[in-house]
Amino acid sequence: MSYPVWPEELVQFERGGWQAAPQDGRRRSQNETGPPGFRRRFSATARRVDLALIVPQAGRARFWRFHTEDCAGGAQLFWMPDPSVSRARLLDHTGTPLLTGDGTPLLLSRLWLCLWGDQPPVESVEGDVEFRLTFSVWVMP
């Protein structure tokens, strides 16, 4: 089965809207005395990432089309570029950008397999002609 791919035109995520936290894969046990104990509940944990986009009307329509049609209203997994590294320059040990033979910088790239978050995306008006879309995804292990 192939999964839909995040729209290329929706990759300018807000830095301020970024927040990530791992899923808690521990099982807690309360001891009779002393601190609680923990052990592994499961070995593969997902990571929740909160994201925000500011888009014009066309970007808003593309986002909702992707969510509603391509991802079955948020019920289907999808591929998304990792916003924390995508399109950043690859550097050598001295911090100098690595280049191809024709002088083009090499860029980092990583894809996540994601599931939409627990709550549906939220939109709000930003300025006169833009919209802020906030949502969370679960990055699968």
Rank of each mutant, 00 (worst) to 15 (best):
L77S: 05
R39D: 14
T94Q: 14
G74N: 02
R110K: 14
R28G: 02
S43K: 03
R132A: 04
R87V: 09
A61I: 05
R39T: 12
Q30K: 06
D24L: 04
A20D: 11
P121E: 10
L107H: 01
R41W: 09
L106P: 06
D70S: 13
Q23D: 11
Q19A: 12
V125D: 15
S43L: 12
T68I: 09
R39V: 13
G17S: 02
R132I: 06
P35D: 13
F131S: 11
A52H: 08
Q57W: 11
A61T: 08
G16I: 05
G95H: 08
E69W: 01
Q119K: 11
S43T: 11
V85G: 05
T104Q: 14
F78C: 01
A58Q: 08
S109A: 15
D70Y: 00
P83W: 00
G127H: 00
G74P: 09
S29M: 13
L77E: 04
T33C: 03
A75I: 10
D82G: 04
F131M: 08
P120F: 05
G117M: 05
P35M: 12
R41N: 14
S86P: 05
Q76R: 05
R62N: 03
W79P: 02
W79H: 12
A61D: 13
W79I: 04
L77W: 07
G101H: 07
T94L: 15
A72N: 11
A21D: 10
G37H: 09
T104D: 14
D82L: 00
R26F: 02
A44F: 10
A75F: 12
A44C: 07
R48F: 10
Q76G: 08
V125Q: 13
T96M: 03
F78E: 05
R89V: 06
D92G: 14
G37F: 05
L91T: 08
S43Q: 09
G95R: 09
L98V: 06
G101D: 05
G25W: 03
L99H: 10
R65F: 04
